[in-house]
Design a protein around this nucleic acid. Structure first.
Lengths: 334, 334
DNA sequence: GAACGTTATGCAAACGTTTGCAATAGGGTG
DNA sequence: CACCCTATTGCAAACGTTTGCATAACGTTC
């Protein structure tokens, strides 16, 4: 551990050049002779020199940091446990790094209500990616209209002056439901809460497909998006109404798995008595038994698109919302 | 959107005081009359003023940021999918925020090999939390000896000049194995890779308990820590050797669930023919069927302890490693 | 009313970069 | 050799805070 942090001026002195030259050399500025550049870069490596990011940021008015904030509703705080959300964050992280940015992981706790002030004016990040619209979009709106470079993972059909990236939830809802119907289900159940914009779209597709089918009926089980809630509500429904359905479209795999557990405990056969389709395609979908038919959301691509659109905003563009394709993964549960 | 970012000097001018006073007022410095403080704080809120963090950090030589880096081996990159790891990160995030710090999420991609240079000298963070020792600890060692304030989630028994926080893996291994034996298992299997320090301890406990039991035999299935690998290896073992075991201690719940899937597909009854115990207690453990007996790691507490120990180092202390208690959660799989 | 102590505020330097502009060196040309 | 042009480098200011020290304001006391 060297006693004192080396600064650019020290490195410059060592090399016998000015700090300006050193700065330019490290940033590969072609103004500087290549020979000098190489020499300085080598010297920097040799002495484990790193630029002081705080100083750079102050000078450049740019942080090279992207804030990711998980927008969970206070009530459903547990949803942060959903492996899918964390997978999204993880894939965003990958994409962010690939662009040479860093990822500040945050949540409403630190950022408070004034995201623009905190992240942008506070020079903590150059832009914000919000994961999950949540039920209230007030804070997102406010931040966007304050001029925050902002991208949201959510339902791309929602209107707003910020780009939303998300799956084509309506089509996904259609696909999943049609598949249930194709497999012979007629009394189908939607599990989830249409108060969420994304789920509303899935529900819309769901209802539409059912309506198109003469002898099919739809019902809605409005629940929090947790496996626990799903387990309980299915248990309760079976108890009070018996097996009043033969198909389930669950708004997430965790919900589907919770429902499956309740069904199995009561010896309802899957997929013979009840067909189930989930959403997300988390790792568990493949491992559960029966394995879970589900709609796969392409989180890898999503991360990339989110970051691209954010960077586009930093460059002054005004990118459009994007709908990502989804894929029906057929497995044993249907 | 105001045309120009307001700075402290502007706020001070508005209030008719000097920037020094404004600075002290916003930081609640008792040197300043309370009345003045309140006035300035109110004014700041009214104008959505935020201090420029880059400038503060430069001046204070302190970032109030903690870097968290997920230390995955190149080969098993998938392990980042393990819900457990992400849960740990999420709980660290909570603890970090509670202490008024922010969380920089990183990985080897950005930080390269010289963590100290990148994070500390680069003034990107005040300290580093490493999640997962991985198989090679060289980089951790190097960073620690460079003087990085550092805490590691891993096996607390590992020697090193940095504190490691983790579960009491040895005892957990004993508990899980003893439970299997108590339930009547005699030919027990350990699934995991003892090259990982944490798993080595679990394996040690496993072997010891089996050795103590006269008619019991132990075997090791060395695999990557993924459900996929577990599924495949169990399938293969059943095929080549038939049902050569009656108890499994899996190194993670994902591994256990993968194994369970393979067993169920071949109509091996759980827990009658084979008892299974997992590790971590992820949400799925409770939802799978049969539900999975497992060792619960207290990630919530872990996050808190990790952060506390890191902050202690920032204050100049030299904290000790900590073993966290584990709990055997008995469910249907055993 | 002068001297003093206390309390509240202001001045100015410093943190370590980056960059517009100026300056220098080197080489070719008339 | 004077001139100019280009290729390189250096000077110094600026980014927006925080804080040691100086100063001012205001009672209090002799």
């Amino acid at each position: 551990m060297q006693s004192k942090k080396m600064k650019l001026a020290d490195l410059a002195k060592l090399a016998g050049v000015s700090t300006s030259t050193a700065s330019r050399a490290l940033n590969n500025n072609p103004l500087i002779k290549e020979e000098t550049r190489n020499k300085l870069q080598a010297l920097a490596k040799k002495h484990n020199f790193s630029l002081n990011a705080a100083a750079s940021r102050l000078r450049l008015q740019k942080t090279n940091v992207i804030a990711v904030l998980i927008n969970f509703d206070a009530e459903t705080e547990q949803s942060i446990d959903d492996p899918f959300l964390l997978k999204v964050v993880s894939d965003i992280n990958l994409a962010v790094n690939r662009q040479g940015y860093e990822l500040l992981l945050s949540n409403s706790y630190m950022a408070g209500d004034d995201w623009h002030g905190y992240f942008i004016d506070g020079r903590r990040a150059d832009g914000v990616i919000v994961v999950g619209q949540g039920k209230q979009q007030a804070r997102i709106e406010r931040s966007a209209s304050a001029g925050t470079p902002l991208v949201v993972w959510g339902d791309p059909k929602t209107e707003g002056d910020y780009p939303i990236v998300g799956s084509d939830n309506y089509r996904a809802g259609c696909m999943a439901t049609q598949h249930l119907l194709d497999q012979g289900a007629r009394r189908v159940l939607f599990m989830g809460d249409p108060a969420h914009a994304e789920l509303a779209e899935r529900y819309r597709g769901f209802c539409e497909q059912v309506d198109k089918t003469p002898d099919a009926t739809a019902s809605l089980l409005k629940i929090d998006i947790t496996s626990q809630a799903a387990y309980e509500v299915i248990n309760q429904t079976l108890l009070s109404e018996g097996l009043s359905f033969d198909g389930i479209f669950a708004c997430s795999d965790m919900v589907a798995l919770g429902a499956m557990k309740a069904l199995k405990e009561r010896y309802v056969s899957i997929p013979n008595d009840v067909r189930i389709v989930g959403f997300d395609d988390i790792a568990m979908a493949d491992i559960s038994s029966p394995s879970l038919t589900t709609i796969k959301q392409n989180t890898r691509l999503a991360g990339q698109v989110l970051v691209d659109k954010l960077l586009a905003q930093l460059h002054g563009d005004k990118p459009q919302p994007t709908q990502l394709d989804v894929e029906l993964i057929k497995r044993q549960s249907s």
